[in-house]
Design a protein around this nucleic acid. Structure first.
Lengths: 214, 214, 214, 214
DNA sequence: TATGAATGAGAGTTCATTCAT
DNA sequence: AATGAATGAACTCTCATTCAT
């Protein structure tokens, strides 16, 4: 999927004004933003291409000029969400001066994620989608994990001497995702019971069980 | 969906021949079993009434004679699953002689749940469904929690002296569901990474964080 | 295609009233008749399922309950047309007493075909369709020829002693189809030029070139 | 389709740089060649403007700058094919010294046509198209016949003394087209049955029935 | 109660055509 | 003249649900 990326405008053809490319980029961005909104509101399955296009102020045709299908945008959005997450933690770690600051940065990163419930909900739907499409499962899981742990593998390890192996890293990452997803889902499902305060009380201990505290 | 509440025409119930009632009950049971199987295989959204009816060896008409719609069976199945769970733990507790045995029973109960990934997946879908239907959310959440904690409220408290309040009980129940759902989803998503052994290592500590260990 | 034929109502199930089966048969017949009309009017490619359904006074859903897709009805109609043709010639031959009468019957058969221009037009479209779908071509051609020559192979040969081999028979059949199709197309294309009278003058000689005149 | 007649803006033709005109002409030629190829491969209906443009190495826009629509190119291509055919036979006749040579030239001309099955297929599609657009039928038929017989009318008659009237000429032309189209279609449909050898055996006699053999 | 034919809204998708550049 | 992004109508097909039996 998503092989149909914009062909980079070769210089040997007409000047092409650059304005078209801009217009194109805007449309794509508008569609992605709209898709994110609609997916968050209606869920992946129930979302309609028409609604996404309308939300972006474009036509269904514009959608299909930019994406292969609903799955394609969904996966692209997921990938972008992961990239954004990676960028954030990377920036935070680079600003932290000592190991204590770095640990705090990681904790903050996790805490903030649990607040972004919409995104976690979509992540749950993404994983359900993968489970319901066994032929894609392995590839999607690998891509997801790769994106999800890249930051850890490449950068965490240089900050935290006791975090070195990749496999344990992936395990920890997935375990934390499990925690975040499970609590996000249930916090939305029953906000009065699983309230913010209780979560704040509970999470540190749970995270401590997963993350090594040297 | 399913805004119409089931209007059970009670006055017509009396004169039925007993044999008809049996036949009817069998159809209903067959459809429920079939629905459970199809839901587990395809997920709620992707499941087709036709497939459920066929799996039960009945027709679409039989389905609609017994249920209001797809949502209706789904919710009924969820309710039954909860009842079954309650029955199990109740039986186990009644057999346990001392507090240690009872604690062991509870732990076993939780452990067995995490193995029933299909059911947990459906529980996730159920909660997502509730979130996507805000007008039903409160009612569904209340029903679910009520069913989920009934056993705890009514019975656990008489076995475990330190478990008394209802609110904390509901919190703990939901927190454990969050753990189970999160790990079930991710264990299915990436079985090589989140393998059984790692789960077995991790879960006791996580559960310990949620459950009070007096 | 067309594997989805009506399942024969088994006796072990409910009485099923026979009325449903009748209704079903009527719908199917209505759709076939409608399809024939629409195909003749608009051509295969330009025909819309919706128009066929509307012409039959049914819904699109009814169409898809009875046929796999547009191609499916088209091929079924072609097959029926061939069967009808076979029935006609068979009846005529059985009524003819001597070889002269039989030859006259065959000639009449051919002459009448050229008048059924709508059917010949559809036959042209059918062959174009086959040519544009190479993966089906061999099968479609074989089926068509088989149907087209069955009558000849099985029955003509017993009436006409000099018509014996199958291969020459198929050749003659196709050659006559070529003549009929070519002239039907052009007679419709330019009726003033290729008028009925000219055709009647020309055809006997052309047919004589193809058919052996012992 | 194509109801709008091409409004060739003649007043703008003057000042163009000559180089532009050449470039323009090249584009048009490239598009025509591409269209011919794509039409032959996919058929008129199934051919996509995008494929034609891509085959020509141009854009959809270039296509619409040069042609009104798909029908427009199709008709233009047909017209060109007819012109080419006329040119060929004209040249051949001019080279033939006596009536025998001329007859041979005509026969060769016909024989060569039957080999150009792709072109004949398109001619069939053209005629079907005309039949499906009754409002254009008369005009298209007249144009086609005019082009198809021009050579005959204007030139054959001066070579063959016994060919004089126009009406019979048009009849013969159409009759031969009927033969060629019918056999081309069926030879492609079932090449094993209607093989080259059989055609070569059959055609002379058939042509003899249509053409006067003085 | 149960059947299954029929409905019909609506999904995803394609593509001839338009239009700002 | 040429580009190609965008339009939007039209298509095929699916499926939850209804309804005559």
């Amino acid at each position: 999927m998503a092989e149909k990326t914009k062909e980079i405008t070769e210089e040997e053809t007409a000047p092409k004004s650059g304005l078209q490319a801009l217009r194109s980029e805007r449309t794509r961005a508008a569609l992605l933003a709209a898709a994110e909104k609609i997916f968050a509101r209606d869920g992946f399955e129930a979302s309609r291409i028409e609604d996404i296009a309308a939300e972006a102020g474009r036509s269904r045709g514009a959608f299909y000029a930019n994406f292969l299908n609903k799955t394609d945008v969904f996966l692209e959005l997921r990938a972008r969400a992961m990239q954004k997450r990676a960028r954030e933690i990377r920036m935070r770690l680079s600003r932290a001066s000592d190991e204590a600051a770095r640990t705090a940065a990681v904790n903050l990163h996790i805490i903030e994620q649990i607040c972004d419930t919409q995104s976690l909900l979509l992540q749950i739907e993404f994983k359900l989608f993968a489970l319901r499409h066994p032929e894609m499962l392995a590839e999607l899981a690998e891509k997801h994990l790769e994106a999800s742990t890249r930051v850890h593998e490449q950068e965490l390890s240089e900050y935290f001497s006791h975090l070195s192996d990749v496999e344990p890293m992936r395990r920890k990452t997935l375990a934390i995702e499990a925690l975040l997803e499970g609590f996000a889902l249930n916090a939305l499902f029953s906000p009065q019971i699983l309230d913010r305060q209780y979560l704040e009380t509970l999470m540190p201990g749970l995270l401590g069980e997963v993350l090594p505290t040297p």
